[in-house]
């Protein structure tokens, strides 16, 4: 039995039903503990004061905003290559979640901007890149909504996602070329391993990041299940009208 069998809509509904409460539970526990710990039981930073605590929302949201798009890209590629319907619907389900994460990252960033930079918004490369990412989400979702036939919509949005990813990466480097920016370097560089966050903040931050990741998975599973049900309703209605 290959792993792809789990991508069959019926199988997917079967195995996600018991997983879903666990996913939401773990996500709630991790983010809850991480946020409370981070907000109330960590010292204030010398440089930033209490405002540093927004990091517990800002960093995980920003992380998931990018990862959500990456997941949509992978799902789109799977749809284009193997034509598993669940994959296309999962990409559709992930887009609004990713967009909300982008908005959270932008909004918390703007709030953090006032005490540190003295302004809500600067045209800094990172902020600008996220603004562009937000526009990509917007276009992707709008295209899904605009097309009636589900297969056509899945095909077109998948190609848009693939082409858009290339341009998103191009934009990121173009934006860095354009303006060097105020934003600090990444707090958690995965590749080099040397993080700039002090140990006291690190554990709750890690909990929040994992919590947001699990929350994303849970939301996408839930929304994918809804999309599958909608699609199934559509298919059943089509059959009934034909039989009549």
């Amino acid at each position: 039995m290959s792993m792809w069998e789990y991508a069959n809509p019926k199988k997917f509904m079967d195995w996600t039903a018991p997983v879903l409460p666990w996913a939401f539970g773990i996500a709630g526990l991790l983010t809850g503990v991480g946020l409370v710990w981070g907000f109330f039981f960590t010292p204030e930073a010398e440089l930033f004061g209490a405002t540093v605590k927004i990091i517990y929302l800002h960093v995980p949201a920003a992380l998931m905003a990018i990862n959500a798009w990456f997941m949509m890209l992978v799902a789109s590629l799977i749809w284009v290559i193997r034509r598993h319907h669940v994959s296309a619907l999962a990409a559709r389900a992930a887009a609004p979640v990713g967009m909300v994460m982008t908005v959270i990252a932008l909004a918390t960033g703007a709030l953090w901007g006032i005490p540190t930079w003295g302004t809500y918004w600067v045209w800094d490369p990172r902020l600008t890149s996220f603004m562009i990412l937000f526009l990509f989400y917007l276009g992707y979702i709008a295209l899904w909504e605009a097309i009636e036939d589900p297969d056509t919509a899945a095909d077109l949005t998948a190609i848009l996602c693939i082409v858009g990813s290339v341009f998103a990466i191009l934009s990121r480097y173009a934006v860095r070329f354009w303006n060097q920016g105020l934003h600090q370097g990444t707090s958690v560089p995965v590749v080099t391993g040397g993080r700039t966050v002090a140990d006291v903040y690190w554990v709750p931050l890690l909990m929040c990041m994992i919590g947001f990741g699990v929350l994303f998975v849970a939301l996408v599973l839930l929304r994918t299940r809804t999309e599958i049900r909608l699609r199934r309703m559509r298919a059943l209605t089509a059959r009934t009208t034909r039989a009549a």
């Binding site: 297969d151 199934r232 059943l236 059959r239």
Partner: peptide
């Protein structure tokens, strides 16, 4: 037939 197999809807029925 109304319940004919095939088509992209079939996976969902």
């Amino acid at each position: 037939a109304a319940d004919a197999d095939g088509g992209s809807d079939a996976d969902f029925l």
